[in-house]
């Protein structure tokens, strides 16, 4: 459903993403792993139209989305849960959720999110800034799901979170996939990400240096040394 060729992102002349290509099929979970600063986050931001980017090809369901504003990409089926959670801290959980869908959230979508994240449901009227880190991460994912994406982009969802929350995020990714939504997850925690994913791309200094089935990469000597610490 997503086809990317020759994607480039640079900030003030410094190249962050150097002509990478990737593709994601419907209902697939794909991991983007690599060290801090490898360009993972820039790829996701470029897909959402949040940073200036150039590409040879950037197609969602066969139609080009390069140059479209973020709102149109969301309407086209993309949604991002940003790095560092990035919730609206002084707004309530419900207000955060309703902002996830351009033009306003629907009650039935919000109910679906509440069923998926019971903790958020309990805290519906609480200010988002008072939630724990894990709850804020759930809120950021829930907010992205409010847009009913067909491809959910997750930027560093486990950053700074306890192992038990990391497992919880794995469960959510499974649920999202089961509901037919594809997931592209950028993660420094390669072990967790390869556990969730069908396929993965390894990003080094803005270029894809390895790609393949997640199960194969987990056994790959180089990946194990560089990213799994074993």
């Amino acid at each position: 459903m997503l086809e990317v060729e020759g994607l480039e992102v640079s900030y003030r002349g410094n190249c962050a993403v150097d002509g990478i290509s990737l593709s994601i099929a419907a209902g697939e979970v794909v991991a983007l792993i690599g060290a801090n600063g490898a360009g993972k986050s820039s790829v996701l931001k470029a897909l959402m139209g949040l940073v200036p980017a150039a590409s040879k090809r950037l197609d969602l369901d066969g139609s080009p989305i390069a140059g479209l504003p973020t709102r149109r990409r969301i309407q086209g089926g993309l949604a991002l849960s940003p790095e560092g959670r990035a919730v609206f801290p002084r707004m309530s959980v419900d207000e955060n959720l309703s902002l996830g869908r351009p033009g306003g959230g629907h009650e039935e979508d919000r109910n679906a999110i509440r069923r998926m994240f019971p903790r958020l449901s309990e805290r519906a009227t609480q200010a988002a800034g008072t939630l724990s880190g894990g709850e804020q991460q759930m809120l950021a994912i829930g907010r992205a799901l409010m847009a009913r994406p067909r491809l959910l982009l997750l930027d560093e969802p486990t950053l700074g979170l306890a192992p038990v929350i990391v497992q919880e995020i794995g469960r959510i990714i499974d649920e999202v996939r089961a509901a037919g939504t594809a997931v592209l997850v950028a993660e420094q925690n390669a072990l967790a990400a390869l556990g969730w994913a069908n396929r993965a791309y390894v990003l080094t200094n803005g270029s894809v240096t390895m790609q393949g089935d997640a199960a194969d990469l987990i056994d790959n000597e180089e990946v194990r040394r560089a990213y799994l610490g074993v």
């Binding site: 959402m48 949040l50 504003p69 973020t70 709102r71 990409r73 969301i74 309407q75 991002l80 940003p82 990035a86 919730v87 609206f88 801290p89 002084r90 707004m91 902002l99 996830g100 351009p102 907010r143 847009a147």
Partner: peptide
């Protein structure tokens, strides 16, 4: 509250 997040949700 958060300009980047506002852009990310399509505002």
């Amino acid at each position: 509250e958060n300009e980047f997040a506002a852009r990310a949700v399509g505002i």
